[in-house]
């Protein structure tokens, strides 16, 4: 027998829920300013409408669909809402629950979270940085232009030329973070279930 999870409860019991979810009057002030609403079939207030209606199956559908992945996390909505709702933070909660329960796999945009773990997640875990020069392979990023290609090819000389200790464990930009610190970082990930969460997203596939 399939006992359905109480998705509504999973969303509402997140500690950030009462900070970001007040009542919504659907005035549209958030969608007016939301960059994602202008290019995607998405309106921040729809997330609130769905939760306000309180139907578990509707919420399950929402967590399985693309609409929770459209937000660009700019938080332009926050200073404008006349009821103090924060759609950008509600989205964080929804994305968390979607990944925790596996529903993210039902949408094309959701399942792409795996790609983010493979790039950003891996980089944080291994280097202590979200982004490093090594990770931005020019063929993966043609939009960065020929100057980036040149930067990448010559990075070992260019970064030091600009004063960087480049991969040495000395204070400065693009330094190597000491392994002692990486260990502390990874321990934090373990103890806060951050590593578990990354493994959950990757469904056991190796990413480190």
């Amino acid at each position: 027998m399939d006992t359905e999870l109480n998705y509504l409860e999973l969303v509402t019991k997140d500690i950030r829920f009462t900070d970001c979810y007040k009542t919504c009057m659907n005035c549209g002030i958030c969608s007016a300013i939301c960059p994602a609403a202008h290019v995607y079939d998405y309106k921040p207030r729809e997330l609130y409408s769905i939760i306000q209606r309180g139907s578990n199956s509707e919420i399950k559908t929402m967590l399985s669909s693309d609409i929770i992945w459209e937000c660009g996390q700019c938080l332009s909505c926050k200073p404008r809402c006349p009821r103090n709702n924060i759609p950008g933070v509600l989205v964080q909660i929804l994305r968390k629950v979607s990944q925790q329960t596996g529903l993210y796999k039902q949408s094309t945009k959701g399942i792409a979270q795996k790609e983010i773990v493979r790039s950003i997640g891996k980089n944080i875990y291994a280097t202590g940085y979200c982004i490093s020069p090594d990770a931005l392979i020019p063929s993966d990023h043609p939009e960065l232009g020929p100057v980036w290609e040149w930067t990448y090819e010559n990075r070992e000389d260019l970064y030091p030329r600009l004063g960087s200790p480049y991969k040495k464990e000395t204070i400065g930009s693009v330094r190597a973070i000491p392994s002692k610190t990486i260990t502390e970082l990874q321990m934090i990930f373990e103890l806060t279930n951050g590593t578990d969460f990354l493994n959950t997203i990757m469904e056991g596939e190796s990413w480190q």
Binding site: N26, G28, I29, S31, A32, I33, A37, K43, R45
Partner: peptide, 12 residues
């Protein structure tokens, strides 16, 4: 001016 026509569901 930026607003949303909430009845049509379109930002404008």
């Amino acid at each position: 001016i930026k607003a949303e026509d909430t009845l049509l569901g379109l930002p404008l």
